[in-house]
Write a protein that binds this DNA or RNA. Structure first.
Length: 798
DNA sequence: AGCACGCCGACT
DNA sequence: GTCGGCGTGCTC
């Protein structure tokens, strides 16, 4: 039998199947989707079995070295999905499969040197290496010998040394020690005066069941030595048992029953429920205003899926995967829920994955990668906040979670729910065309009103002589809230500003010497750092250009806002939430809890407070710079602005008291800001769609981004021009090929960057053409320094 | 991606 | 003559 295998070498030349003989004793074991270790050239590497066949065309076959899994880690569905993903995103198949599995399952291969003879027979030069052990790491030998590797070669030739390749799994299964009384316990073996041992024994007798060793020791206040004595006397047996790390250990969740649905919710629930019951692969777009109770619909739909004996995936953007949302799912579904997000350690992720893999849970709540959860009876996929950009993976494979979700739902014949208060134009357009089924929740639950939104023209403020970052209206509103003991949220949109450094005398801005990008000021060690390559330098005290002393960091950071806030409103208690204050584990939740308990009057924060925040006492939301990202040169900047403003507005007045929103802006007439005052998504959609149509942007067109880079500038220019020419020749007349132009970031890590963009509509051969380009420049990319990176349906144009 | 093989210059 | 530099090509 032959195992057709994808090997763990992410390179163009190895992106195909390699055949291996399945040894007789493994024939009953090896199945598609398992990880195996195979000889590849002179070394050992990991691979995935894709299929098992009878024969191979290859003459000289090698055998599988080792099987890593007792059961397949990839189902047939996921194997096929990986193939599709690799094709759609133009990446290596191995990269697609790796993306579907927790990092713990990725193996590392280490090369080792093993001593076969006696130490003194070895060349004196090599002897120190093997003084302590007979096996050393190859890497250590290279480091120690630096250029004198010929001695190793000689020793290898003479058979004194041997090279071993060791494949190690990264993830470890956690084990716990358990104990119980031995069947035939002869108590007379315990001496009279061994009180502690007797105590321990008595405790075990009373409990009369298997217990965790650790728990018994702490309950009886005895030490491991006492236990060890009993084990040695065969009075107690101890064994290791596999267990899971519990990221939510110690947290108790009260079971909560389903809430009654409002009429509007019921109208939305019915069609989804029918789709679930009829096993229909249908995509719903649930457009529900903030506070309309989308989550309750998700919960009740999932319940129905579970009642059918099926499983559900609940996707949320990483940023809103807070303990609050997790708690809500745990409270409804208890132990049937697994959680997957970046905050978990490698081991924790591995354990959650295993609980899914073994069908011990029925629901997974997770970010992007949870879409690959290895369920076999999938009954529903929900994608909350479907417009969020974090659903697009930015490194290989550059997939969009929505496309994967729909593909999987298709396979399992189950529905997908895309939920949002501000759907992406792509999704809403598809819903209007009837590709997705549009469902709307236009009202907040209990008929609570939407918050009133007012725009403050900051130009007028400036004209009136107010140079601070708080307008008069915002100050007044904040003061009122303080008097009424209500809470406020201040939102600072930092994107578009960053904490760059500038000389006030000559305008000089320090740039990274390897990347054409401004350096960012880091307060912690008073240094300047490059976000792209990590280059770091000291903050200059005088301007390197004009030697002026007025060089300082710019940009309105949250710290600066906080400083000014405490100056103008000294009586206000402020909680600041940004990357700095939420760096440590659990800090995020702590700050939110504190705010929820009324320990502060004002919550000041960045992006991260735009979502999921639900506190009854918030009656004011202030946005300091509503237009901050409007001027980013990206065709989606208007859409993002509207979405963000609508989301933050939604934080106000979610309960009894009505909410008020103040948007400070220098461009108050822009439609992305104006339409928020009416909470008019439809109006925004129509306006923005008209713009997209004229400019031929998505959703009217698809896009692909090709970035070419090389340390040699002329080569980049030449190759990107040739690529653009080729595309212009090959693509149909309707397709627009833009570029080549210099990338927005012209240089990263000393590599010059140019890019081309394709805007196309009906072009069945785009992927083929792009693959052809990669093939054509294979020499330049593998042997030269050229890099060509492809992004289908890009979200970032850097 | 590694790693070996092979061809060329530099040096014992 | 041999050692080691790097370009070229293969890995079931």
């Amino acid at each position: 039998m032959i195992a057709r295998t994808i090997v763990d070498v992410p390179a163009a030349q190895t992106d195909r199947l390699f055949d291996y003989i399945i040894p007789d004793h493994l024939e009953e074991i090896v199945r598609p989707g398992m990880r195996i270790v195979v000889p590849f050239g002179p070394r050992l590497i990991q691979g995935f079995v894709i299929e098992v066949v009878q024969e191979s065309d290859v003459q000289k076959l090698k055998s599988i070295e080792e099987v890593l899994d007792p059961t397949p880690v990839l189902t047939d569905e996921l194997l096929t999905l990986g193939e599709w993903l690799a094709e759609q995103t133009i990446c290596f198949r191995i990269s697609a499969y790796q993306a579907m599995l927790p990092a713990a399952l990725k193996t590392a291969v280490t090369k080792e040197l093993h001593l076969l003879t006696e130490l003194n027979e070895l060349h004196p030069y090599l002897q120190p290496l093997f003084k302590e052990k007979r096996t050393i790491l190859w890497k250590d030998a290279v480091d120690a010998l630096a250029g004198h590797l010929k001695h190793v070669r000689n020793a290898l030739d003479q058979g004194q040394l041997a090279v071993h390749y060791v494949v190690k799994e990264k993830g470890k299964k956690k084990t716990e020690k358990w104990i119980k009384l031995a069947d035939s316990a002869d108590e007379t073996k315990v001496k009279e005066n061994a009180h502690k041992q007797r105590e321990l024994l008595l405790y075990l007798k009373q409990q009369d069941k298997a217990l965790r060793s650790q728990e018994v020791l702490s309950a009886t206040k005895t030490t491991r030595a006492n236990l060890k004595a009993l084990i040695d006397k065969h009075l107690v047996v101890e064994w290791e048992q596999e267990t899971y790390r519990d990221p939510l250990q110690g947290v108790e969740y009260k079971q909560t029953p389903a809430l009654p649905l409002t009429d509007e919710q019921q109208q939305v629930f019915t069609p989804i429920s029918e789709s679930v019951l009829n096993n229909q692969s249908e995509t719903f777009l649930l457009h529900g205003v903030t506070g309309s109770g989308k989550t309750e619909i998700y919960l009740q739909t999932i319940e129905q899926v579970l009642n059918q004996g099926k499983e559900a995936i609940m996707l949320v953007p990483e940023i809103s995967l807070t303990p609050q949302i997790v708690a809500r799912f745990k409270a409804r579904f208890g132990d049937e829920v697994a959680v997957m997000h970046s905050g978990l350690s490698t081991g924790e992720k591995y354990d959650e994955w295993r609980r899914i893999h073994r069908s011990e849970v029925k629901v997974v709540v997770g970010a992007r990668s949870a879409v690959f959860a290895p369920f076999s009876k999938l009954g529903l996929i929900i994608m909350d906040e479907e417009h969020e950009m974090s659903y697009k993976q930015e490194d290989m494979p550059r997939y969009h979670t929505k496309e994967v979700a729909i593909k999987r739902a298709n396979y399992h014949q189950c529905p997908v729910i895309l939920g949002s208060a501000t759907p992406s134009l792509e999704s809403y357009a598809r819903a209007k065309k009837g590709v997705y089924t549009l469902l709307s929740l236009k009202h907040r639950v209990h008929n609570r009103p939407m918050p009133t939104v007012e725009i403050v023209d900051m130009r007028e403020e400036l004209r009136a002589g107010n140079r601070s970052m708080f307008s008069t209206s915002l100050m007044e509103a904040l003061k009122t809230r303080l008097e009424r003991k209500e809470q406020s949220v201040l939102f600072l949109n930092r994107r578009g500003y960053s904490t760059f450094v500038m000389c006030r005398d000559c305008g000089y801005v320090p740039q990274c010497e390897h990347c054409d990008i401004s350096l960012t000021y880091h307060r912690s060690n008073h240094s300047l750092k490059c976000h792209y390559c990590g280059h770091e330098e000291a903050m200059p005290s005088v301007c390197p250009e004009c030697e002026g002393e007025h060089i300082r960091f710019f940009g309105t950071g949250t710290q600066k806002v906080e400083e000014e806030l405490t100056r103008v409103l000294p009586e206000a208690r402020v909680i600041r939430m940004d990357v700095d204050t939420t760096r440590t584990k659990g800090a995020h939740q702590k700050l939110l809890d504190a705010f929820g308990h009324g320990e502060a009057d004002i919550l000041l924060g960045t992006q991260m407070i735009a979502k999921g925040l639900d506190f009854p006492n918030i009656t004011l939301v202030g946005v300091l710079a509503a237009d901050a990202m409007l001027h980013i040169p990206d065709f989606r900047s208007g859409e993002r602005t509207f979405q963000l403003l609508e989301q933050v507005s939604g934080r106000a007045g979610r309960h009894e008291q009505p909410g008020e929103v103040l948007l400070q802006s220098y461009t108050p007439d822009h439609y992305s800001i104006q339409l928020v005052t009416e909470h008019n998504y439809e109006g925004f959609f129509d306006y923005e769609m008209a713009q997209r149509r004229t400019a031929e942007y998505p959703p009217y067109r698809f896009m692909a981004l090709i970035t070419v880079s090389d340390p040699d500038l002329p080569n980049v220019i030449e190759k990107s021009q040739k690529i653009a020419d080729y595309l212009k020749r090959t693509m149909s007349k309707e397709t627009v090929v833009l570029g080549p132009v210099v990338s927005p970031i012209a240089r990263i890590k000393d590599r010059y960057r140019y890019q081309c963009m394709i805007k196309y509509k009906n072009e069945p051969r785009v992927i083929e053409a792009l693959q052809q380009i990669l093939r054509h420049y294979l020499r330049d990319t593998t042997q030269g320094n050229l890099q060509i990176s492809l992004d289908m349906h890009p979200y970032f144009f850097m």
